[in-house]
């Protein structure tokens, strides 16, 4: 191989894509700057020419918390695991909104960047990756509010807080896996784009945010309920942060992890399978 400016000149073979393939991680690392720039663009554009700017990342969960506290906490007196309701709901809303923002923007990332997809070659998975990453930033903007609330209510994090990064990772992995499925389906069927807001709303009700998962008593239904990987994630995040764990629930943790990984791996395979047709049908 020759070199120019120290780079080796790559040799590219173009041929019909063969059946099932996994993501080419080496190629993806070569495109890390593109991932960075696209995430940066998403972030920058999201808050350009807005009155409140980044404050939106705080206003949304806080307003939802206020409404939840009034209706579910005060009026309906929904049990909240013995935690003050506003703190309870906010500690569930933050990981949930991270998930929701990530999978909603990830799912439409291909269709909303169709001019790039039809004009330029790059590993297509770059688009959902950077959309999901740009959503993570919002979480960290809102996180200090949650800390302030904890201080106000006198909750001190304990050693369980070390589990938090794991739960965040699990949230991002799940959101990314779902994005892979939905973004590839959205290219083929625009229905997906229309039903995503609806799906995310339903999904929220199926996740213990406004209520505690103890509300579901029947053990059979509890198992079905836990098929939603976000149940384990939101419960885990809340308990790890507020230190209300009795013990680490290895079983439910592992269950969430397995389901998330299953979504991720099938999503990757499906995405790769459909990828070669993206430019022709998008």
């Amino acid at each position: 191989m020759e070199t120019r400016n120290g780079d080796t000149i790559p040799e590219v073979t173009i041929q019909p894509a063969s059946g099932w393939r996994l993501i080419d991680l080496r190629e993806l690392t070569r495109y890390r700057e593109l991932i960075y720039f696209l995430s940066w663009r998403d972030l920058k554009v999201r808050y350009k020419q807005t009155l409140l700017g980044v404050a939106w990342a705080v206003v949304q969960p806080v307003m939802t918390m206020v409404v939840f506290s009034i209706f579910f906490g005060n009026l309906a007196s929904v049990p909240s695991d013995g935690i003050p309701y506003p703190l309870f709901s906010l500690a569930g809303l933050l990981p949930w909104q991270l998930f929701e923002n990530a999978f909603r923007s990830g799912s439409k990332s291909l269709v909303s960047n169709r001019n790039m997809v039809t004009k330029i070659y790059f590993p297509r998975v770059v688009l959902p990756v950077s959309s999901v990453l740009s959503s993570v930033a919002d979480f960290f903007v809102a996180f200090p509010i949650l800390i302030a609330m904890m201080i106000y209510y006198g909750y001190m994090p304990n050693a369980y807080a070390l589990l938090l990064p794991f739960y965040l990772l699990l949230t991002v992995i799940t959101a990314f896996g779902v994005s892979l499925w939905f973004s590839a389906l959205d290219v083929l069927y625009r229905d997906i784009g229309y039903i995503i807001p609806f799906i995310s709303q339903l999904w929220m009700y199926l996740t213990p945010i406004a209520y505690g998962s103890d509300l579901i008593k029947n053990p059979k239904w509890r198992t079905v309920y836990h098929l939603n990987p976000m149940v384990g994630v939101v419960n885990g995040f809340r308990r790890a942060l507020l230190g209300t764990y009795a013990e680490i629930p290895w079983q439910s943790l592992l269950f969430s992890l397995l389901i998330s990984l299953a979504i991720l791996v099938t999503g990757l395979v499906y995405f790769r399978r459909m990828e070669r047709n993206f430019a022709d049908v998008i």
Partner: peptide, 30 residues
Amino acid sequence: RVTDPTVGRAKIYGRVGSLLEVGTGFHPEL
């Protein structure tokens, strides 16, 4: 490499830069 061929193969030695359309990815707000 925007789209795959149905049959056949091609080899390209070197990086490919395409100007299939200038301004791809430009964002009006930036």
